[in-house]
Computed example of a mutant assay.
Amino acid sequence: MSIHSERGGTFSQEPNNSRHPILDETDRLIIQLLQADARMPNNAIAAAAGVAPSTCHGRIRSLQDRGIIRGFHADVDPAAVGRGLQALIAIRLHAHARANLTEFEKYLAGLPAVESIFFVTGDRDFLIHVAVADSGALRELVAANLSLRPEVAGTNTTVIFEYIRPTESSPAA
């Protein structure tokens, strides 16, 4: 099936994933360039992709509208802003609480220490990446916030010694 975009261009939908249409080579290149440097100017992206700046701008807007580009953000080192202790906390919910996952997700998202939230399979329901000032703040987060929630059956905390984000120069696995 082909769909014509109001911003120009036609794309096909994948039969097994209608939420994200198949991307053409220009879209893929634009995404690759933005992943490498989200601050890259539109005219530089356009030149690298071989399209006019207005076309490039339209494609980026379309990628955003379609939910493929979810946002642009600054990657800040938590230690530089006083949150040098990072951990992964696995959370298991009581069976009856699974009916209100959205509410619990909103609660987690509202905690200032939470960097990322993962809804996972296995014997745990959520895995959250947190960054806090020190071990006291981590203990407070787990003992006074998470463990006291009525829907939480248990937690398991793993301290992160080092967080390494792969870059383009990193060898592929």
Results as ranks from 00 to 15, higher is better:
Ala79Phe: 06
Ser5Pro: 02
Val81Met: 04
Thr167Leu: 12
Thr10Gln: 08
Leu29Ile: 08
Thr158Gly: 07
Thr167Glu: 11
Ser169His: 02
Leu146Trp: 00
Val76Phe: 07
Ile160Ala: 14
Asn100Ala: 12
His20Trp: 12
Leu148Val: 15
Phe104Ile: 03
Leu34Val: 05
Ala52Asp: 09
Val142Gln: 09
Asn16Gln: 15
Ala46Asn: 09
Ile60Ala: 04
Leu127Arg: 00
Asp75Arg: 09
Pro41Ser: 07
Val76Cys: 02
Gln86Ile: 00
Leu23Asp: 08
Leu85Ala: 06
Leu93Tyr: 04
Ser147Glu: 14
Gln35Cys: 14
Pro41Asn: 00
His129Gly: 01
Arg39Cys: 08
Leu111Tyr: 02
Leu29Gly: 02
Glu168Thr: 12
Tyr163Asp: 10
Ala153Asp: 04
Thr10Leu: 10
Arg92Lys: 09
His94Thr: 04
His57Phe: 12
Ile30Phe: 09
Leu88His: 10
Val130Cys: 00
Ala137Pro: 01
Asp27Gln: 14
Phe11Lys: 01
Glu25Trp: 07
Arg165Asn: 05
Ser116Gly: 03
Leu29Tyr: 00
Asp134Ile: 01
Glu103Ser: 13
Pro15Gln: 08
Gly9Val: 07
Val142Ala: 02
Gly58Arg: 14
Asp65His: 13
Ala47Phe: 13
Val142Ile: 05
Gly9Tyr: 04
Asp24Gly: 10
Asp65Asn: 13
Val142Thr: 00
Ala97Cys: 08
Gly84Lys: 07
Ala36Val: 03
Thr158Tyr: 12
Asn43Ser: 11
Pro166Tyr: 13
Ala99Val: 14
Met40Cys: 09
Ala47Cys: 00
Leu141Thr: 03
Ala48Tyr: 04
Glu140Pro: 00
Arg124Gln: 11
Ala74Arg: 09
Thr158Ala: 15
Val114Met: 04
Ser135Phe: 14
Thr10Asn: 07
Thr26Val: 15
Leu101Thr: 01
His73Ser: 13
Arg59Asn: 10
Gln32Gly: 12
Gly67Asp: 11
His96Met: 05
Ala79Met: 01
